[in-house]
Design a protein around this nucleic acid. Structure first.
Lengths: 357, 357
DNA sequence: TTGTATGCGTTATCAC
DNA sequence: GTGATAACGCATACAA
């Protein structure tokens, strides 16, 4: 005796075929809207759809994937989901994927290269058809490169420029952001401006610094190197906060006057606010502070943080679109053009900066 | 001619069988560590594993799922991933799932009941074997109930008590939290204490309030109703912040003195800090403020927010464990015992509260 | 335009 | 202890 057929109310294509009086293939063609369905009589389609609905037919996704070799999923690999920077990007990704038949499979690497590779592997095993990597913070993308070379899979990295490794990337224009930050403080009358740069390993940091220097050069503004500090190459983004606190305290102790401070990112900026407070100072009265990113919490602190905004949702959206473009042309074997999409930052005015007193 | 066999370097079970000289069944039994593999000779196992490794065999997850009826996934439905409250819970879930063969499929409903239902549907279609719902904020769990009744699937809700609907739940002990918050302020010498309660629809809010009243009653402390406000039933958690700002300003305008304030949650508390600042007041000098949750950003503001901590990672972990327990006993048809797991909150001391001046 | 037959890669059920 | 064989549910080449 074969296994009981009615083990559960599971409705299959064959059931729909029987009930509707058509063959399984016709039913399949109609219900999966295959190209051939163009030649199926409208009436037939109608009848098939009706009975499918009636029986409550749900295609078995595993059978379908097994046969068609499509998983209809894209992997999303993020380096630390607890970094508020990521979340908006994720929302951009999700929003863009929602109207498509693709499902995001989200994995969080927790800053761990090993886990990153493990999840990458897992995603491959799950046969994701595309990959979006949200590369906040430090990250050796060697492993990724291998993945790209081995598989012909559309891959886009958001948050870091890895075009040199022939991987499509979406980032904010960090140089322009640095420029804008410095410009804003300058226009408020600040001339003695301290800078807390990001970790040396982080290319973003260099680019933002370049932008600041460019502005300074244009205006003949001197950026005293003694007012410039740099975060250590630690792995945890929360160290941005701790680093901000410490370096700000150092700056204060150095007795070198500064009326404003450009922080590497928002967390560092919040650290700077704290550092100031430790010496009884407040922003912006005693020192203006500007951040970078515009993470959600920048609006929730007091004072609200003036910052250079990355259009994070848009970045997520764009990266996703890039992957989808390749996927939807069913261009098996095509690659994402490995170029850099550079999005403009924007100044978000809140209360942590003010005209020099 | 059948389709080309060597379309790609895809290695199947049959390949391993041929190469190793055993039958596909034996290979399957060994590689999937089925119960029967206990009876397979150690040598055989060894040889099979070797050749599998050698050929770089990866089991096809879709074929496997099709045949075995196991997806090895659990759905995680969260109501708003941008709510920092969620993220720690998610990490708890992920951490607990990591060493198991189960993969979380995360979906974000964006506060939208319709999307919630859509994703629920999608998860069912993907044949998740269990479901964890992270129910931050308002949410009519009617739809969920249906899902539970229809399918025999382990479901746990974290963040809200829905045991009345026979659904397993994990929450913090809100009543105890409210008690602790009030106790802390009282012990610092505060007697004129304002309260911003949560939305009326939110049961958490009532429980916390009960706790505060219990403490007050025990100490013979009067909680003047004129110092008690309530957030509106808006849908967006960010309104907690806006609400905190506005209600605090209202309290100040009422000219009724208060030296401390219990906020419904951390975001509300940050709103209160802002509201205070709008009138030139600061915490804790002019008014102590205590929050609830201990979201990550509570540590990053200045002053750091004193708050009642929910053990969010643990809550996620526990909920996951609950689902896994059912799953791993392969107890098809068993249900999660629909009881409530109540976790103790804890006081986190930072700088937003101080002894009454 | 629709039906028939076959196979996707795996696991389960039996024999041996 | 191991192997042959039959599904799992669907999609496609080809025949009609």
């Amino acid at each position: 005796m074969p296994e009981r057929k009615s083990k559960s109310a599971r409705v299959t294509l064959v059931d729909v075929a029987r009930k509707s009086g058509f063959s399984p293939s016709t039913v399949s063609i109609v219900l999966s809207e295959a190209p051939l369905s163009r030649y199926v009589a409208a009436q037939t389609k109608e009848r098939i759809r009706k009975t499918a609905q009636l029986l409550g037919y749900r295609p078995d996704i595993f059978a379908r994937s097994l046969r068609s070799r499509h998983s209809h999923t894209v992997g999303v690999l993020v380096f630390d989901i607890s970094d508020p920077y990521c979340v908006l990007i994720l929302q951009g990704i999700e929003k863009t994927l929602l109207p498509t038949p693709y499902l995001p499979i989200l994995m969080d690497a927790h800053h761990d290269q090993k886990q990153f590779e493990g999840y990458l592997d897992l995603l491959m095993e799950r046969r994701v058809e595309g990959l979006i990597v949200v590369a906040n913070w430090l990250f050796d993308e060697g492993g990724l490169l291998v993945g790209l070379k081995e598989k012909k899979m559309p891959i886009v990295v958001v948050g870091r420029d890895v075009t040199e490794k022939q991987i499509g990337s979406v980032t904010v224009d960090n140089e322009a952001g640095g420029y804008e930050a410095m410009k804003h403080l300058y226009e408020l009358g600040h001339r003695k401006i301290a800078v807390i740069r990001g970790p040396a390993k982080l290319n973003d940091s260099q680019l933002r610094w370049n932008g600041m220097q460019r502005f300074a050069a244009e205006q003949g503004l001197q950026l005293d190197p003694r007012r410039v500090r740099q975060l250590s190459d630690a792995l945890d983004p929360v160290t941005g906060f701790e680093g901000g606190v410490q370096l700000t305290e150092e700056l204060i102790r150095s007795r070198l006057k500064f009326t404003a401070l450009v922080a590497f990112d928002d967390l560092t900026a919040l650290g700077a606010v704290r550092g100031l407070a430790r010496s009884g100072r407040t922003a912006p009265q005693d020192c203006s502070i500007i951040g970078f990113d515009d993470v959600p919490l920048a609006a929730l602190t007091t004072p609200g943080l003036t910052t250079i905004r990355q259009p994070m949702d848009e970045m997520g959206s764009l990266a996703t679109q890039r992957v989808l473009d390749v996927l939807q042309e069913v261009g098996e074997g095509r690659e994402v053009t490995p170029d850099l999409q550079l999005l403009p930052p924007s100044l978000v005015l809140r209360d942590s900066t003010s005209r020099v007193g």
